[in-house]
Computed example of a mutant assay.
Amino acid sequence: MMASNKESLQTIHTEAVGPDYVSKNHKPEATVSTAVSFPNVHVLAQTPQLIALLTMIRDVNTDRADFIFYSNRIIRLLVEESLNHLPVIAHEINTPVGRSYAGVMFQGKICGVSIMRAGEAMEQGLRDCCRSVRIGKILIQRDEETCMPKLFYDKLPEDISDRWVLLLDPMFATGGSATMAVDVLKSRGVPEDRILFVNLIASPEGINVFAKKFPKLRVVTAFIDQGLDEKNYIVPGLGDFGDRFYTL
């Protein structure tokens, strides 16, 4: 494991980013998301806007107010992309000028479930896009004796088995907490293919395990980083998201 970690940390994926009409010679080189080959993992397009936002929240010198502001912008992008993966049905309407328009409308009910406490930072972004959306909570912490994730608390909508679930957690390192959260949802009757895991930054190690364990679940993330260090911290990462969002 240590050898593979070191190997992955040596790989930095960079490419020129910028509008298509700008010459490649004038585009800045930027670190972009690590490529993965899982069909159920969807990474946001590595646009200049997204890379600039990620740069702000990764910077150790970014103060809390700016960290919250720029994180919320990324979260909004993630939620909007996640909603694109929900089913729609045909819906024809009439416009104010008397013409018909062949459109679509959302099908089914949704809810959010945040993995406390960092996942709670993503709730407002979901509320901004989905009015009056129900939100459940799951608290998972590491057992100090076994170093394994342990479920401490969950509060979920009674009809969650009938809903599409957006599972919210900004940082995805080893995947232990997210895996347990998915197991909780499945135990409450939520089909695996109705769960979308919404995440800001992931590790390739966590993605590899998670995508194979839950092949029907979809992951929507903004960025897959280089890897994990010897302490299982995501690198280059951004530090402790919950601390920077709520307290630092």
Score class of each variant (00 low, 15 high):
residue 92 E to K: 15
residue 118 A to H: 06
residue 150 K to A: 15
residue 106 F to P: 05
residue 108 G to Y: 03
residue 145 E to R: 13
residue 174 T to P: 07
residue 86 L to G: 10
residue 45 A to M: 14
residue 71 S to N: 04
residue 137 K to G: 03
residue 117 R to Q: 01
residue 161 S to D: 11
residue 89 I to V: 15
residue 116 M to R: 06
residue 177 S to C: 07
residue 67 F to E: 05
residue 116 M to E: 02
residue 138 I to V: 13
residue 46 Q to C: 02
residue 122 M to L: 15
residue 114 S to D: 04
residue 123 E to K: 02
residue 161 S to G: 10
residue 132 S to A: 13
residue 143 D to I: 04
residue 117 R to N: 09
residue 66 D to A: 08
residue 180 M to K: 12
residue 43 V to Q: 13
residue 138 I to H: 00
residue 145 E to Y: 12
residue 69 F to G: 08
residue 56 M to H: 05
residue 111 C to A: 07
residue 94 N to T: 15
residue 58 R to T: 05
residue 87 P to W: 05
residue 150 K to H: 09
residue 77 L to H: 03
residue 179 T to A: 07
residue 143 D to E: 09
residue 136 G to W: 05
residue 137 K to Y: 13
residue 152 F to G: 00
residue 172 F to N: 06
residue 166 L to W: 13
residue 143 D to Q: 07
residue 135 I to W: 02
residue 166 L to P: 09
residue 63 D to F: 03
residue 74 I to W: 05
residue 127 R to G: 02
residue 44 L to H: 07
residue 45 A to E: 15
residue 159 D to T: 15
residue 141 Q to G: 10
residue 67 F to P: 08
residue 162 D to V: 01
residue 140 I to L: 02
residue 71 S to P: 01
residue 68 I to T: 10
residue 44 L to S: 08
residue 161 S to Q: 11
residue 104 V to R: 11
residue 95 T to P: 13
residue 103 G to N: 08
residue 54 L to M: 10
residue 124 Q to E: 13
residue 161 S to F: 13
residue 150 K to L: 12
residue 65 A to H: 12
residue 148 M to R: 11
residue 181 A to P: 06
residue 110 I to N: 02
residue 66 D to M: 07
residue 74 I to Q: 03
residue 104 V to T: 14
residue 151 L to K: 10
residue 75 I to T: 10
residue 76 R to I: 05
residue 109 K to G: 00
residue 59 D to R: 10
residue 129 C to G: 00
residue 171 M to Q: 04
residue 89 I to R: 10
residue 140 I to N: 02
residue 153 Y to E: 10
residue 176 G to L: 02
residue 96 P to I: 12
residue 73 R to Q: 15
residue 155 K to Y: 06
residue 115 I to G: 02
residue 167 L to D: 08
residue 67 F to Y: 14
residue 156 L to F: 03
residue 139 L to W: 11
residue 154 D to I: 06
residue 126 L to E: 01
residue 156 L to S: 00
residue 153 Y to C: 06
residue 146 T to F: 05
residue 46 Q to F: 01
residue 168 L to Y: 09
residue 157 P to C: 11
residue 143 D to F: 02
residue 181 A to G: 08
residue 176 G to S: 12
residue 80 E to D: 13
residue 61 N to M: 12
residue 169 D to R: 04
residue 184 V to S: 11
residue 156 L to H: 00
residue 106 F to K: 07
residue 101 Y to G: 04
residue 122 M to W: 01
residue 156 L to C: 01
residue 93 I to S: 14
residue 51 I to C: 02
residue 167 L to F: 05
residue 57 I to N: 03
residue 160 I to E: 08
residue 124 Q to Y: 08
residue 57 I to V: 15
residue 123 E to W: 06
residue 96 P to S: 12
residue 66 D to G: 04
residue 145 E to C: 10
residue 60 V to L: 03
residue 142 R to C: 14
residue 99 R to M: 14
residue 55 T to R: 10
residue 110 I to W: 00
residue 103 G to L: 09
residue 51 I to M: 09
residue 134 R to I: 03
residue 159 D to M: 13
residue 127 R to T: 01
residue 155 K to A: 05
residue 87 P to C: 05
residue 62 T to A: 11
residue 120 E to G: 04
residue 63 D to R: 05
